[in-house]
Design a protein around this nucleic acid. Structure first.
Lengths: 214, 214
DNA sequence: CCAAAACTACCCCAAATGAGGTAGTTTGCG
DNA sequence: CGCAAACTACCTCATTTGGGGTAGTTTTGG
């Protein structure tokens, strides 16, 4: 790290943003962009091939999204530092990203100088988080019952199925006809899934669910 | 237009993207970025002050969003060419943007060379649309009764406000406390907005609304 | 094989919801 | 100014929702 510059790989499906980021990084001595990818699949291959010091990974991508890419990279044994870059400010995905092995979570609307600084810190091995993100993380840790995406795994097949129908706006009666069971039974499943998710009404469940699948 | 370069103003709350775009534009002779704004309010002032040949306006911004900014600019008599720039690919906002006086609608994940070309064409007075967008526009025109976001315009301020709270999963009672009105009154607004939107329950309303803002 | 979990269906009941209605005040517009 | 729309608040009433319970059948996993 003393002789050659740190190698960085950019993964983002917006060419413009890659351009801006690359130019920004080029201003800094000791940093070098050695590869750019516009999608997760390419990134997986290149990451193993090049083993860069740092991978800057967009969260919101077409096709395989950033979280999925992150997960697969770690599964494949990629040991590069990986920093997520995203637009959304108050994102629950931060928890998922960190638990899946991200070394940082930065926002695209950061001040460029601050961003450069954070990138350097990330390469030094530090965990870097945007201001707005630390709060989200803090509250998430404070309230471990936060309904993260993994909560879906706690549901039975029937409950998940019914949750999806709720997320389409259906009433218990309609769901009952759809699944060919009594509406009393639907109510039981709804009751259970609400309890498991820590939610207080089908409206909350619908909103939560719709937000889950982007 | 023959002697001096065309003046361009960038409006986007992502510094990185502005940087990338600016650098891209600087590569082209005859184009010059004369101003950058990170929000709609600034953009309104600068647009009147500088009267640029072209304004490139981000659709998704914090605070005043791109559509609102566009509308206000036209209301203020800004005659610059205005091209919307956005991330989302199949956006219903395109119809609103065009009817509100936008001269183009481009996507951030376009090929940079293509983007430059489109910018030049916009300055020449042509309407520029991304590939993916022309389809959306075509179907929208083919189906003029399409339930576009304009349905929201039929709602009163209070109704829109309450709809947004429903879309956060709130109950009538909670909404009442939030807005400091009686829950009976909230029920009236909910009743009205459901009727106007042609929906049958607050769950449908919540789902519809959440899907509206991506 | 047997226990645990899931799925089904019903019971009761309090609370929330949505569709009617009347009615007073405030706001905006011609 | 005067009217229409919006906002407010209340009324009734049928329906839906969600929490609690019991209980029978089927599936699953050790």
């Amino acid at each position: 790290m003393s002789d050659s510059p740190a190698s960085i790989m950019l993964v983002d499906d917006h060419p413009l943003l890659r351009k801006g980021l690359k130019q920004l990084i080029s201003l800094e001595d000791g940093l070098e962009v050695i590869a750019e990818c516009s999608n997760g699949a390419d990134a997986l291959v290149k990451a193993e091939e090049l083993d860069p010091d740092l991978i800057i990974l967009d969260l919101n991508m077409q096709g395989m999204d950033g979280l999925e890419t992150l997960k697969r990279m770690r599964d494949n044994g990629v040991t590069s530092r990986i920093v997520m870059l995203t637009v959304s400010d108050a994102d629950e995905d931060v928890v998922t990203a960190i638990t899946n092995g991200a070394d940082g979570y930065l926002l695209k609307d950061m001040d460029p100088e601050m961003l450069l600084e954070q990138i350097s810190r990330a390469i030094e091995g530090k965990m870097v988080l945007s201001e707005a993100i630390t709060e989200v993380l803090a509250t998430a840790l404070r309230r471990p019952s936060a309904p993260t995406k993994s909560k879906l795994d706690g549901l039975t097949n029937r409950e998940r199925e019914i949750l999806e129908l709720i997320a389409k706006g259906m009433s218990n009666k309609v769901i009952a006809r759809e699944l060919d069971i009594s509406d009393g039974t639907v109510k039981v499943h709804v009751k259970h899934l609400l309890k498991k998710l820590g939610l207080r009404s089908r409206v909350e469940a619908a909103v939560w669910m719709v937000n889950q699948d982007q």
